[in-house]
Amino acid sequence: MIIQTHNLGKRFGDRWAVKNLNLTVEKGQIFGFLGPNGAGKSTTIRMLLNLIRPSAGCFELLSQRVGSSGKKIYARIGALVEKPDFYLYLTAEKNLEILAALSGCNSRQRIREVLEIVNLQERAQENVRNYSHGMKQRLGIAQALLHDPELVILDEPTSGLDPEGIHEIRELIISLASEREMTILLSSHQLHEVEQVCTHMAIIDNGSMVVQGAVKELLGKTDFYVTEVRIDRPEDAYQLLKTEKWLDDITLDDELLKVHLSADSRPLLAEFLVRHDFRIYSIIPRTSLEDYYLTLLKKRHGR
């Protein structure tokens, strides 16, 4: 087990930011960590990285109970937490040199390697002060990979990157897992990104675990399919359908009806449309992480 939390909790005053969290990440997984703002993702990551002290529970990293092993375990973990911050008055190379020294590796060769990985080798001698946000983000990933860790924790790693940069980072994450057998915990707001990259995921809300498992398995649950319907007179259909009790939700988006309903109810939808003389161009059941996520949270909040 790479990450295992046991009823992990963190309380700020009277409010539990994270409560009874049992997160399990296994070796080789690219683990997406999802949740709305304030759900407790960052608090969980900070606890895992020893930035804040848990109020309850405990956790293991790389099969070692953190606390009893001191901080040595962090020599095997790389992390990028929230926005990447560096010593602006130092060069990128010097920043990496400091972090490498504190990680127990001090190879200039490795510093050059990671700078090449994130495509910053040309500007390694520049003060970080002159870097754009995207460049800092890439340097943040470079520092996380510096000591060739077994577990990489990335918090919003593609934030601020241009499309090309986002693509490069995604490719990098996949290659780190497949080629270097690194385990990656990826916290992101970009559901599309998680869907594309992650093998496993967890969703937390209000500090509690909502669901966790393999991405394919979770998205395979038909309850969370959205049925996209293209018909004539979509506005009329929308007005009729929205009062029906057998569907969960319906939205009209640019003449496309998105109907949230269980797979069992799908034939009812077709019958209903035919009965009301609508011309059906297509009825396509689709699923996406976004739909899954939003549906799950809506259900949870009773909306």
Partner: peptide, 14 residues
Amino acid sequence: AAGTFRVLMTRPIT
């Protein structure tokens, strides 16, 4: 203030 503690403290240094 600069946020660099976050980076430092993810290292194996107490």
